[in-house]
């Protein structure tokens, strides 16, 4: 592992215009409505690491993923990969070269594969596009190799996506992501559409591939148990902001941000250990009109006037006034 971070995300921002059409808006005398999906997110990922972003719906975690891979333009801030800024005027040639190293695995394996294409062509598309192999035989050979790598049969290249189950399709999607020798894979809820026994297959496969090929993952999920299984470092997002970043072990053993604690408490207790739990309160506010100050304050038992007025800046990985002021009670280390 090198000390040099492979991915550096600095103060990333993205707003969406969710206003009504111009004519309607003008007639109703409404102003533009902007949704701050991502509001100043910074983190970095070292090579070979799995960085997980967790959060509930509307937390902006998928938006971050799409900006990191370049599917979405940031409204502000910067993504650097191997030190090269991925936005802005310069470095165009280097960016093109780096693009090849970044691929993505999507949530719904039924939507991420073109239903009209044969599996061999789906996997062959990046091989051709990035010039890994040119002639037909080499592409076919490479596609077959990849299919074997993800636990399928090279003969499956002749089939169409609908002939496969969800888990098998996700394997195909993984093969496509690896086709151009990419080493940084952004995984957007890769198993949340799958059954648990299939999820286990896919998670194990992803870990094996990471060990074999030295992959780096940015892993997006709402499922803390899955994240616990995959991640080396975890970032918890709430309403577009990163509220806590910590090494996985530390985050689960000693969560500091009140929201992280609440999330952990909400996870169903399969082991029936009878661990102490505090009931969860309230629902996530609309990101169109987020609460003032710290956006978590309406659901937080520790909120005071400062929390309602002033957005906390991250200190030592935690963005919380209560933590900074030492108002958060210590948790027993058992959790």
């Amino acid at each position: 592992m090198t000390e040099f971070p492979l991915i550096e995300v600095t103060d990333l921002r993205r707003t969406f215009d969710v206003s009504k059409p111009w004519l309607e808006r003008t007639l109703a005398r409404e102003s533009r409505q902007l949704l701050k999906a991502v509001d100043g997110v910074s983190f970095h990922i070292r090579k070979g690491e799995t960085f997980a972003l967790v959060g509930e719906s509307g937390s902006g975690k998928s938006t971050v993923a799409r900006m990191v891979v370049g599917l979405l333009e940031p409204s502000g801030g910067e993504v650097r990969i191997a030190g090269v800024p991925m936005t802005g005027g310069s470095h165009a040639a280097e960016r093109r070269r780096l693009r090849r190293r970044i691929q993505m695995i999507f949530q719904d394996p039924f939507a991420s594969l073109d239903p009209r294409w044969r599996v061999g062509d789906i996997i062959g598309e990046p091989i051709r596009a990035f010039g890994v192999a040119e002639n037909r035989r080499d592409v076919t050979a490479r596609a077959g190799e990849l299919l074997r790598l993800v636990g399928l049969d090279p003969a499956d290249a002749q089939k169409f996506p609908h002939e496969f189950s969800g888990g098998q399709r996700q394997r195909i999607a993984i093969a496509r992501a690896l086709a151009a020798d990419s080493d940084f894979i952004v995984c957007d809820e890769p198993t949340s559409a799958l059954d648990v026994s299939v999820q286990a297959q896919i998670l194990n496969l992803m870990r094996d591939l990471q060990d074999r090929l030295g992959l780096t993952y940015l892993f997006i999920s709402h499922n803390l148990a899955v994240v616990r299984h995959m991640a080396t470092t975890i970032g918890v997002m709430y309403l577009g902001r990163l509220v806590e970043v910590a090494p996985a072990r530390q985050l689960f053993a000693a969560p500091r941000h009140p929201y992280t604690r609440m999330l952990l408490d909400a996870v169903p207790d399969l082991a029936m250990s009878g661990r102490p739990r505090t009931p969860v309160q309230g629902e996530i506010p609309s990101p169109i009109s987020p609460p003032s100050g710290c956006t978590f304050h309406p659901r937080c038992g520790l909120a005071n006037d400062r929390c309602r007025a002033e957005a906390p800046a991250p200190i030592d990985g935690v963005a919380c006034h209560a933590v900074a002021e030492g108002r958060v009670p210590e948790l027993r280390a058992s959790a």
Binding site: M104, F106, L113, D114
Partner: peptide, 20 residues
Amino acid sequence: DYVQAARLIGIPAPLILLKH
């Protein structure tokens, strides 16, 4: 997502429209 995947690979828009 299959169109997004094609964009990620860097396939030009006219080709994505035509082939996907």
